[in-house]
Amino acid sequence: MLEIRFHGRGGQGAVTSVELLALAAIEEGKFAQGFPSFGPERRGAPVLAFLRIDDHHIRLRCKIAQPDVVTILDPSLIRIQKPAADLKTNGIIVLNTNKSLAEARQEYGFKHTLALVDANHIAREVLGVLIVNTTMLGALIKATGVVKVDSLEHPLRERFGPMAAKNFAALKAAYEKTVVEEARP
C-alpha cells in the first residue's frame, strides 16, 4: 500500500488532488481512499489531505501516520507543518518551488528523495491562475509512478469540464519538468 499526504492551504485544492488521484487509481482497477483532514473548512488555513492506494480493498479508517510520500503545494507550509518529520526513511518529498535541488535541501534540511517543480510558474503560464493542485499531480506521478498520466484525463474531464484540457496540459508540463534526486542521508 502507498500512503500519500498532501500539504496545502484551504481553497488550494489539496482535497481535489487526492480525489482525482484516487479516481485515477480506481479506474486502473486498483483500490484507493482519498479523504480530507476532517473538520471545518477554512480558506487559507493549513490543511492536509490523504490518499491510500493498494491492490486490495483497503480496511484502514484512520489518519496516515507515516506517509510514503508527502506532496507540498505551498512551500510556506514547510515551517508550519514540518511535512517531512514523520515521513518514512525511504519516503519521497514532492515540492512546489522555484529553488534548485541543492538550494531546497539547504533551505529546508530535507534528506529524503526529493522531487521539485516550479508549479507556480507552470500554473500561471498554462492555466493563467495560481492554483497548483492539478499541476502538482504531474510532479507526484513523475516521482512515484503511482498511476499513469493518462489515467487522470477522465477524472479531470468529469471534474472540470471545459477547463479539463488546460489542467491536463499543466499536469503534463509538470510531469516533464519535475526533477527527482535520490535521498541524501
Binding site: V18, E19, A22, L23, I26, K30, F31, A32, Q33, G34, F35, P36, F38, H57, I58, R61, C62
Partner: peptide
C-alpha cells in the same frame, strides 16, 4: 454510517 471516516472518503 460513520461520519467523515466513511461519509467523506472517495473509494472504490
Amino acid at each position: 454510517l460513520d461520519g467523515f471516516i466513511l461519509s467523506h472518503v472517495v473509494e472504490a
